[in-house]
Amino acid sequence: MTNSFIEFRNVSFRYGKDQPWVLKNVSFTIDSNEWVAVIGHNGSGKSTIAKLINGLLFPQEGEIIVDGLTVNEHTIWDVRKSVGMVFQNPDNQFVGTTVRDDVAFGLENRGVPREDMLKRIDVSLGQVGMSDYLLHEPHRLSGGQKQRVAIAGVLAISPKVIILDEATAMLDPKGRLEIMQTVSHLRQAEQLALITITHDLNEITRASRVIVMNKGEVWLESNPRDVFSRKEDLLQIGLDTPFVATFADELSRQGIKLGKQPLNHEELMDELWTYHSKM
């Protein structure tokens, strides 16, 4: 038996009998309250993993367990009570004419009483800093604001895990940073499991664990610092390394040996200060 919240057991998937396998014998676990980043180049299978967790797709081989339930046609509605997804393009998720209506949609589908619904809408919008946009039209919001509303809609249904499927891909760097800071805070405050699907290695620094996908298989499973240290290997499978990792590598070639692989600009500055203090 396992205490994992999500478990993939030898999962394989393809989009048709004559199509190549998108996932091949994939196995991993994700615990409750854990932040796991799933990264890989386009076509590596990472977004397919997200859709399989939520029952949007079903594997041809193997099985997927979510919160004790095997994901299949009979359990998907119970599974989706525990799993909330935010996609790359929030416009594809909007169904309401106002922000309030849109956040209410998932609650209405679950038969949540109106009084409770109104409270959940207020709380979830407050959590993402969008309380002042209650009656705004979602399509008139900025990209970052749209994603905040999409996250609020997910939070309102009280999931146990949130999946961000390339949710920041359409945002500028500032918008990406704001969204990642928001979900990081929410994960800690609400004790949620968080799965971020991305090809941007800059987004994995806060994750506790990283699953690197390549050609439909788990290529590496480790912590962010170890992943960053494998720059040449990452480049070979089509992943660009973040500026901080590249800069640290160049410093090493120039004879400046840092104590550890920095994950962000703050750690880089700390390492440089430590190095300078020892001179």
Rank of each mutant, 00 (worst) to 15 (best):
R110W: 08
V149H: 07
V66I: 04
P173R: 15
T98S: 09
R110S: 00
M117I: 04
T98Q: 11
G129Y: 00
F87G: 06
A104S: 15
S142V: 01
D101W: 03
E137V: 11
L118F: 10
D91R: 15
W77A: 05
E115H: 13
G175T: 06
N92Y: 11
D165I: 01
S124E: 13
I65N: 08
Q145D: 11
D67V: 03
G153W: 11
G153Y: 04
A169D: 14
S124L: 13
E73P: 01
E108T: 05
R114V: 13
A150S: 15
V86F: 12
R110H: 01
P138K: 02
S124T: 10
R114F: 15
L118M: 12
L164V: 15
Q147C: 00
G96A: 13
R114K: 13
I65V: 14
V154R: 00
H136S: 14
D102R: 07
W77C: 06
M117L: 11
R110F: 00
R110P: 00
D102W: 09
E166A: 13
L171D: 12
T98H: 07
I151Q: 05
L164N: 01
N89R: 02
A156D: 06
M85H: 08
K119V: 05
G111D: 03
D172V: 11
Q145M: 01
L134W: 10
Q147S: 02
K146F: 02
I157W: 02
A152H: 10
A156S: 15
G106P: 08
V161A: 07
I65F: 15
S131H: 09
L155Q: 06
Q127A: 05
F87R: 03
